[in-house]
Computed example of a mutant assay.
Amino acid sequence: MNILITGGAGFIGSNLARALVARGHVVTVMDNLSPQIHGEDSPLLATVADRVRFLRGDVRNRNDWIAALEGQNAVVHLAAETGTGQSMYEIERYVDVNIRGTALLLDLLANQPHSVRKLVVASSRSIYGEGRYRCAAHGIVYPLAREAAHMQAGDFHVKCPQCGTNAELLATTEDSRIHPSSLYGITKQNQEQMILTLARSLNIPAIALRYQNVYGPGQSLSNPYTGILSIFSTRIKNGNEIVIFEDGEESRDFVYIDDVVDATVAGIELEDPGQHVVNVGAGQRTSVLTVARSLIEAYGADVPVRVSGNFRLGDIRDNFADITAAHALLGFKPKVDFATGIRRFAAWVNGQAVRADTYDQSIAEMKAKGLYK
């Protein structure tokens, strides 16, 4: 197929482009080379630029979309602003890129001749908000965002929305309630719903891949707004203290880049006329404190770790994916466990130049907006 990847010069996109070229597909990448993410220092431009067609373009520009869509059989829409915390004050930019950029794609598909017969959109675990829990008294529940007053008192547990007692975390299934707790999550929900709804009306097969926390060699080491492994690694390499929010036991589902690429390729090549949503994760939870300790060990470093008790409004407590549907529909089964992935990631970081640590700047911005407590 002729496949367009938006945001294809980034971490996931560049790895996906390499995999698709190796499978005989013809790949076009459209990317604006955002300075916050990677700028000119793109993994794609460094490794496979001679094997893909690269267009420097912006999803907010209709003419860029027109040029990129010509002759394409499939579109993999990865381009997005991605910082959960940053989205809570860079509101117009996140809506403009994530929602309006997607609207332009769909407007062209609805109103202009095209050859697109498959749509794949990068959705996110953030659309679930606090996710799926069990209350001893009320069964399956979907808690709302945690109360700032509780967290300021050092209670970071997720509560049953009916009785207020601590609830037990469960794996999040695709039919779980969607109620994002950040502006970023809202924009990803909109992206997914827009593409699936319009694809159905246009009779184009589509799949939304709800990525968990993707990590691995090639991810940005200079973006202070997202990517906890990168943020911690940059601080470690600069000899700076690692400050962990809440009590350090908050957790995420970390999924290795090779597994994400496998699932995405399977979604692109899926021969099914319908529309689908699928979780893409490792199906395991790992605490933030475990991440910090694992990276320090992998680097053989000696930097202090401080559990601060501070928190960011919009952050969820825990999440891990139920990946049963991904296995059934895509044959997806993660191959790289977290311990192996951390070693591979750290080995790659050791071969990179040490980047300036600008994380404190991002925290200062959140403090100034009243979002960091």
Results as ranks from 00 to 15, higher is better:
Thr173Ala: 15
Tyr225Gln: 07
Asn190Met: 14
Leu144Lys: 10
His150Leu: 15
Leu202Gln: 08
Gln193Ala: 14
Leu198Phe: 11
Pro217Asp: 06
Gly154Phe: 03
Ser222Thr: 11
Pro180Ser: 09
Ser181Glu: 14
Asn223Val: 08
Gln212Met: 15
Gln219Tyr: 00
Leu196Gln: 07
Gln152Asn: 11
Tyr211His: 05
Ala167Met: 10
Tyr215Phe: 14
Ala171Tyr: 01
Leu169Cys: 10
His150Ala: 15
His179Gln: 10
Gln162Asn: 10
Met151Ser: 12
Ile178Pro: 00
Ala171Met: 04
Cys163His: 00
Pro205Phe: 03
Gly218Lys: 05
Leu221Pro: 02
Leu170Thr: 04
Leu209Pro: 01
Thr187Met: 09
Glu174Lys: 07
Pro143Gly: 07
Tyr211Met: 09
Gly216Met: 05
Ser182Ile: 13
Ala199Cys: 07
Asp155Glu: 12
Gln212Ser: 14
Ala206Pro: 01
Ala171Cys: 08
Ile186Leu: 15
Leu202Val: 13
Ser182Lys: 05
Thr197Lys: 11
Leu198Tyr: 09
Gly227Pro: 03
His179Pro: 00
His150Arg: 15
Ser222Phe: 01
Arg146Phe: 02
Arg210Leu: 12
Ala153Gln: 11
Phe156Leu: 11
Leu170Val: 11
His179Trp: 02
Ala199Gly: 12
Glu192Thr: 14
Met151Phe: 01
Thr173Asn: 06
Thr173Gln: 14
Ala145Leu: 09
Pro224Val: 08
Ala153Ile: 10
Pro161Cys: 12
Glu192Gly: 04
Gly185Gln: 01
Thr172Ala: 14
Ala206Leu: 09
Ala171Leu: 14
Arg146Leu: 14
Thr226Lys: 07
Gln191Leu: 09
Gly185His: 08
Thr165Val: 15
His179Lys: 11
Leu198Ala: 15
His150Lys: 11
Ile195Cys: 06
Leu169His: 04
Gln189His: 10
Arg200Glu: 13
Gly216Trp: 00
Asp175Gly: 05
Ala148Trp: 00
Arg200His: 09
Cys160Ile: 08
Leu144Ile: 06
Gly164Ala: 06
Asn166Cys: 11
Tyr225Lys: 12
Tyr211Ile: 05
Ser201Met: 10
Leu183Asn: 13
Gln191Ser: 11
Asn190Pro: 00
Lys159Trp: 01
Arg177Ala: 15
Thr226Val: 15
Pro224Asp: 02
Leu221Glu: 03
Ala206Arg: 05
Gly154His: 03
Gly227Thr: 08
Val158Tyr: 04
Arg146Asn: 13
Ile178Gln: 05
Tyr184Cys: 09
Ala145Glu: 13
Leu183Pro: 03
Leu198Asn: 10
Asn223Lys: 10
His157Gly: 13
Gly164Arg: 06
Gln219Ile: 08
Tyr184Pro: 11
Gly227Lys: 05
His179Thr: 14
Pro217Cys: 12
Gly216Ala: 06
Gly185Ala: 08
Ile195His: 01
Glu174Asp: 10
Gln191Met: 15
Cys160Phe: 03
Arg177Gly: 12
Ser220His: 04
Ile204Glu: 00
Ile178Ser: 03
Ala167Asp: 04
Leu169Asn: 03
Lys159Thr: 07
Thr197Gly: 08
Leu209Glu: 04
Thr173Pro: 02
Ser220Met: 07
Thr187Glu: 02
Cys163Ile: 09
